[in-house]
């Protein structure tokens, strides 16, 4: 009997997901033994035309990592959706936009300006921005069109499963692959998260948790946290309480706040939930103050939290309720 077919694709992402997959160690040999790789640009030479040539539904399992940032990403998302029986949004970028999604905090024009004009090492005399279409002596060159808004994979095509994480932890990937290989039935598709926990990171976090009373916030460089104690209590904006478990609370264990890479729990807006939680435990504005004093005291504490949008939506901005910021005149 023919082996099931396997594909992995890399859209707007850093490549960490691919490395994480290889990080499963010698189990990668099981993957090779169990699957027939039919598309995996990162490790083997396949052309898009190869995929186009496959019949619809030919690919049994397709791991799609990376956000939808440009027209090529979107085209491949549609193509792979059509050709795949099971399409998995693999990693935070495909699931919720992740770091590429932070482009939604600004505009393409501003991004371009930063990279091609304002950057100190750029040769200003050339002053050339990449153009979708360029004429060269050999003919015309087209590059994909950069979209104004970064999207998650499920905002472009229906997704069967999600494996969250930036990147997904190797042991979680291994467990999912092992399950698929051994024929354990997966839950009904429809965008379900697999390869992760069902509660927040705090459950896996061994740090001691007490009642919280925050009087100011610290950025990671401003504070050497007390070991063994919940980082949030100490004023570090640890996203653990609003982030799905599955990573084993790796970061908080070594004194680094959770940044939220496993994304929100089911159906939530990770940033807004964390914002609500963290503002709720700010100890300022007691009942003995008058209205103006209360407002002032509360604002003073909140002001110590730098960049709320970037902090709360570091990974999930493109998949949040608002998805992106609003600019006065789009495109400027």
């Amino acid at each position: 009997m023919a082996k099931p077919t396997f594909a992995m694709y890399w859209a707007a992402s850093c490549g960490g997901c691919e490395i994480s997959l290889l990080n499963i160690g010698e189990k990668i040999l099981d993957v090779d033994a169990a699957f027939q790789v039919v598309f995996w640009p990162c490790v083997a030479d396949f052309k898009y035309s190869d995929v186009e040539g496959y019949p619809d539904g030919y690919i049994d399992l397709c791991l799609f990592n990376g956000a939808i940032r440009n027209s090529e990403n979107e085209e491949l998302a549609h193509l792979l959706r059509r050709k795949s029986k099971t399409l998995v949004a693999f990693g935070s970028c495909a699931y919720e936009g992740c770091a590429p999604g932070l482009a939604n905090l600004t505009t393409n024009a501003a991004t371009m300006r930063t990279i091609y004009t304002d950057c100190l090492t750029t040769d200003e005399t050339r002053d050339r921005l990449p153009q979708p279409l360029s004429m060269v002596p050999e003919g015309e060159i087209r590059i994909p069109v950069l979209y104004e808004t970064v999207r998650a994979l499920d905002q472009v095509v229906p997704v069967d499963y999600i494996i969250p994480g930036c990147p997904p932890e190797a042991h979680q990937i291994a467990a999912v692959i092992q399950a698929v290989i051994s024929g354990v039935p997966l839950p009904a598709p429809g965008g379900k998260v697999i390869g992760a926990g069902t509660v927040a990171v705090c459950e896996e976090c061994p740090l001691a948790k007490n009642v919280k009373q925050i009087t100011r916030f610290y950025r990671p460089y401003e504070l050497v946290p007390e070991p063994g104690i919940c980082l949030l209590e100490q004023g570090l904006v640890c996203m653990g309480p609003a982030t799905r478990s599955g990573c084993g609370a790796l970061c908080p264990q070594v004194g680094m706040r959770c940044e939220g890479c496993y994304g929100p729990l089911d159906g939530q807006d990770q940033g807004a939930r964390m914002l609500s939680a963290i503002a709720s435990v700010v100890a300022a504005g007691g009942p003995d103050q008058d209205e103006a004093e209360q407002e002032h005291a509360i604002a003073a504490v909140m002001d110590t939290l730098a960049d709320p949008a970037g902090t709360f939506y570091r990974f999930s901005l493109a998949h949040s309720l608002l998805r992106r910021v609003r600019v006065a005149e789009p495109g400027t």
């Binding site: 940033g271 503002a279 504005g285 209360q294 909140m302 949008a309 970037g310 709360f312 910021v325 609003r326």
Partner: peptide, 15 residues
């Protein structure tokens, strides 16, 4: 009020 104060800062960033 506490949540609203922080939310305002966030909304400012969202334009």
């Amino acid at each position: 009020l506490r949540r609203f104060t922080l939310l305002k800062a966030l909304l400012r960033q969202f334009g």
